[in-house]
Design a protein around this nucleic acid. Structure first.
Lengths: 146, 146
DNA sequence: CGATTTTAGATGCAGACGCATGTATGTGGT
DNA sequence: ACCACATACATGCGTCTGCATCTAAAATCG
């Protein structure tokens, strides 16, 4: 078993630091604009895409890489905020179907410009298109079979 | 203001997904080995490097990208676990100096193989050295002036 | 020196997370 | 039909986080 290369460490520390600080910046910006946290954006997008059929919480959790209880509670909060609705599933008595509400669509639309601006400032303005492409390719390679 | 490129989105989603799932995997492995969370590793390393002079909590927080209260409470837990000690600072009555203990060194040594193995499996075995280099270079570019 | 401002660090509170478990429904084997 | 097991989702408990605020000790300035 060979040792870790210095390049591996550098890649990891870079990856971790960039990921964390960008997430934190986006969260700050959203909060400053009185908007919900970043995780809600992805959830709203996923749920919106699933319309008009709806999504099951379990599937949604898998797509968002959330633990089961994480999805359960996130959806709970979003229901309380009236951004989504839960409907009981008649074909499976254990299940629920999740749908976005009109308020939910509006909220996602309000969140996007903030999110987009942070991505533009921190990624698009700092890297060329080919650099963005290689970053995307590298991360894709890292995600395969993880 | 131009729109976001698809490449920007792909780079960001990839970056975020890889970062998150790798952190989660490392945390799982550490927990499975009955070891403290990942954040403790970085803190222990930083504190060990600062020996024998010690570090001030404020400086440490800055290096670890933690908010002030985050550093305060992390150090608190680590003192309770007897991995570090706080000594009152005589040149500045408000301050503290942090030192690693022998137990702290041992703990860091026990954590490293777990951490290292995850990095090897997820980064080193999936990318070539030149790919690791370009990932490191790209993330470095993204950190400048953030 | 005395008054104001800045800095180091701690902490109460409310909300979120991880873990384990609970409840209810579905599925497969005999 | 029955029983064992699996799946979908919720939740109690303890820990951790973010926010705001507090205390105490410099540092700055008139």
């Amino acid at each position: 078993m060979t040792d870790l290369y210095a390049e591996t460490i550098a890649a990891w520390t870079g990856l971790a630091a960039v990921g964390r600080s960008l997430v934190e910046e986006i969260e700050r910006d959203l909060k400053a604009a009185d908007l919900p946290p970043l995780g809600w954006y992805d959830a709203l997008l996923e749920i919106e895409r699933a319309a008009p059929d709806g999504v099951r919480p379990h599937d949604l959790g898998a797509r968002l890489l959330l633990p089961q209880y994480g999805a359960s509670r996130l959806l709970d909060r979003m229901v309380r905020a009236e951004l989504i609705v839960k409907k009981t599933c008649y074909t499976d008595g254990r299940g629920q179907w999740i749908f976005i509400t009109e308020q939910g669509r509006k909220m996602r639309q309000r969140m996007w410009p903030v999110y987009e601006a942070a991505l533009r400032r921190n990624l698009q303005e700092r890297l060329s298109v080919s650099e963005l492409e290689s970053l995307a390719a590298l991360t894709k390679k890292l995600r395969a079979t993880t």
